[in-house]
């Protein structure tokens, strides 16, 4: 029971990271039907920006987080404008291949820039452990991850449901042409979606840097893929689905590590992916649609 509760705590922290990245995947897919493979790498760039702000500029946690989010939001918009906009009417596979290209570019471009060496995050938030019942431990970092994640999710819900740009995003994802006819600036809305998604990924990157202390240029690949699994699990294109999927996947992974071999952590995520794709490709929260003949 203790192992279970401890892994539950660890799983929720890990799941927060997945959920934050998954949100960007799901929002982008919802609006342009593109699996933005480069999304995991935006998270990596976010982590490096956080490292830059804290280790080199010596900034505290919150300003570093904000800087990283703002810069990645711009990065997301630039990627969308340069690589994806020209392909908006091309076959989806063409856009997918481009996304893979952008992903490789960010990974190895970063490697050229900062070398493949693993960097250690400075101790911006010295770890404090709180003992709960018995040997159960929760750290201040885990609490901060959860608090920041929940705050960002609430903010996202507010943006999507209460603001003009959020309404535009929902309209465009529902029917791009109709939205355009209603006077919505589709290009601007898509840009905004990329910006918001990328900012969330950047936040995840900074949080992970603080949580695990170590970052490297290829750190975005696995979490990126797993966040995608989380998005599919919840139903791609559905915001609450991505959140749920992220937390679920984080918890499952923590349980596998806690009870079995931690080397099975990665395959398990993909087994979940395959099962969900076969059994319910629309995800836990999704509805099945069929092509009109």
């Amino acid at each position: 029971m203790e192992v279970f509760l401890q892994q539950l705590i660890n799983g929720i922290s890990l799941g927060s990271i997945y959920a934050l990245i998954a949100l960007g995947y799901t929002m982008v897919y919802g609006i342009v039907q593109l699996i933005n493979f480069a999304h995991g790498d935006v998270y990596m760039v976010g982590a490096y920006l956080g490292f830059f702000a804290t280790a080199i500029l010596g900034w505290p946690f919150l300003p570093a987080l904000l800087l990283s989010m703002v810069v990645c939001a711009i990065l997301g918009m630039v990627i969308e404008k340069l690589a994806y906009t020209p392909l908006r009417n091309a076959p989806r596979i063409a856009a997918l291949i481009t996304a893979i290209g952008v992903s490789l570019f960010l990974e190895y471009g970063m490697m050229l820039l900062v070398t493949p060496q693993v960097r250690t995050f400075p101790q911006v938030l010295p770890e404090v452990q709180y003992k709960l019942l018995g040997n159960l431990v929760i750290t201040n970092r885990q609490i901060i991850i959860l608090v920041v994640t929940i705050a960002l999710m609430l903010l996202l819900q507010y943006i999507v449901h209460k603001t003009k740009i959020g309404k535009a995003m929902r309209a465009v994802s529902h029917d791009k042409q109709a939205a355009q006819l209603m006077g919505i600036n589709v290009n601007k809305t898509i840009s905004a979606t990329f910006a918001i998604g990328s900012a969330l990924a950047a936040a995840a990157g900074v949080l992970v840097g603080i949580y695990y202390n170590a970052i490297n240029p290829l750190m975005g690949i696995m979490p990126g893929l797993k966040a995608f699994v989380a998005a599919v699990l919840g139903g791609i294109g559905i915001i609450p689905g991505a959140m749920t999927g992220g937390f679920l996947l984080g918890i499952v992974e923590a349980m596998v590590s806690g009870y079995g071999k931690s080397l099975y952590r990665d395959p398990v995520a993909f087994v979940i992916l395959i099962i969900i794709l076969i059994v319910k490709p629309a995800g836990l929260f999704g509805k099945n649609v069929r092509e009109k003949v």
């Binding site: 699996i35 080397l263 087994v271």
Partner: peptide
């Protein structure tokens, strides 16, 4: 057999997942 019902990009992810599962099994 099970995955080819999936549409283009979903299939892509499924094959990527299978590649990783195979690798994960070999590691173990």
């Amino acid at each position: 057999l099970p995955t080819l019902r999936l549409r283009g990009d979903y299939l892509a992810i499924a094959t990527l997942g299978f590649g990783e599962i195979i690798r994960g099994l070999i590691v173990n």
